[in-house]
Amino acid sequence: MIMIEDVHFAYDGIYTALQGVSLQIEKGECVAIMGTNGAGKTTLVKHMNGLLRPQHGRVIVDGADAKNLSIAELSRIVGLVWQNPDHQLFLDSVRKEIEFGLKNLGFTPEETDAQCTQTLKNLGLEGLAERSPFALSGGERKRVALATVLATEPQVLALDEPTIGQDAQQKELLARMLMDLNDRGRTVIVVTHDIEFVIEHFPRTIAMAEGRIVADGSTSSVLSNEDVLERCSLTLPQLTVAARALHKAFPQVSERLTLLSELEDAVSGILGGTQ
């Protein structure tokens, strides 16, 4: 679906953001991209919908070389939700924001209306439809920016730090929606620092540092590699810390437990509660 071959990119030709990145993402995959601030994650996803063009290397989207496609054509295939919603929102009501993208992509007024209503519902934004995005809280604005892209149901959905400012419930809602889109064959890519979100929902993780990919594979293998964690400024999630500490005292507990239920069962096992 997306193939990136030896892509290099430098802003102003000086600061090198990407130094030879290659990766392949198949249709229907669910992939997380993690790494330090300034690792090149955002620069990478901006290459996927043509906002940035490689200075060296190739980007292939849905079988076609991206250099032959305009941003408009690419963004029909790859929908990108920016990290900062304020860079994306500009109209005076939430509903208008969502309708804008749909109209531009040639949806009929009926389709626009139906998609808009459904998306508002999915994201719990019904009550805010007529409000100005600028009168909303940071977390709410973030959801509106997400809604504008989700409504167009692109083949590939790329989200830059979607969980920032979201409480636990909103995060769960977001995850459910992304998994639902994924079940319907859409490719989902997230750039995130939220390691728990990744462990719970994304089977594949690409770890980046200093403009390069340092690991690419199953989430459990990438995120249990100490060297990768160190290079990518990641910290272990609390459950893994607990699992490792328990493993020291009780070797029967696997130090690789990552789910709440697994840890609960392990502790019940030790303390002999009813299972």
Partner: peptide, 16 residues
């Protein structure tokens, strides 16, 4: 209930 990000260690405590 209101969806605060309770630390996982605290959640395990509650479940136990």
């Amino acid at each position: 209930e209101i969806g605060v990000g309770i630390p996982k260690a605290t959640q395990v405590y509650k479940r136990l």
